[in-house]
Amino acid sequence: MLQVKDLRVRFRTMGGLKALVKGKSDPFIDAVLNVSLSIAPGTTLGLVGESGSGKSTLGRAIMGLTKTTAGTVTFDGQTLIAPGLDRSQEIRAHSAMMFQDPISSLSPRLRVRSLIAEALKIRNWPASKIDAEIDRLLSTVGLPASLRSRYPHQLSGGQARRVGVARALALQPKLIIADEPTAGLDVSVQGELLNLLHRVQKDTGCALLFITHNLSVAQHFCDELAIMYLGRIVEIGSADDVARHAQHPYAHGLFSAQPYPDPRRRRTDIQLTGEVPSLAQRPEGCDFHTRCPKAQPRCSREVPLLGQAVPGADVACFYPETAA
């Protein structure tokens, strides 16, 4: 369904003149760097990373909402984003995006009815059938039809997210990009939303890109996981493999840093110390070698590339943890 190859997103951090004055030769940062991934119809890829890892930027770049500097995006067999080519409209015409903050992603002065109708109209739904379709969509996501005339601020967090799903469904997408759809949601209601997304995917067979920082949700919800660090994917693979036998030291540290709700299994050590370096000061060599407990001299000179550092392994590390 979706194929991304060597995608790169560059941002300018300061104007050309200012950079010249400050004597900085490189006023750019790479928010996304040489990312390749693919999602098959009906499957879910989880994009996991800490803040600043570029996961949201990647999601937006795929939709053509952020300009890409290099690389290609192929959708449904057609290359629609490439250097000098921007046919991202065609991607957006068959995709839907869901956002982190449910209420702020719904236009505050429009009622639920208009919010969903807007999506239906853009897909050329016949005007006479819009009302019936809105009711059908609301019941699909488990909301009463009486909510049609509510404004976003009159909805609870869970309800607003369901409206978000209904609107995404109205777009009849082949691909859904969900950017932190469960962030800020209480665990007691989070499950309902995840189940709903599962059901939607089963019914429509769409591909799902699930962007999250919540490792345990990603592990259980997604078919595949990609771990991002400083704009690069450091490890990609089936969710169980990555979560249980992470090979990249960063992925490994990330999963071990997760608090486990059992006082008898408290962590006594921390594997990952320090913090994510700023994108403007990307380390030489491997991005992670400054924090890596296993760093070797080679790591500060060469950049380990996904699939090449260790042939056949989808991990960007010269010395991966051995798969058990």
């Binding site: 665990v187 209601v189 499950g191 189940n195 599962h198 345990s216 949700v217 259980h220 997760q258 709700p261």
Partner: peptide, 15 residues
């Protein structure tokens, strides 16, 4: 409900 305590294969998330 805590996803960290879920078994490996889940088809239905508790809520």
């Amino acid at each position: 409900c805590d996803p960290a305590l879920l078994p490996e294969q889940v088809t239905d998330f508790p809520a």
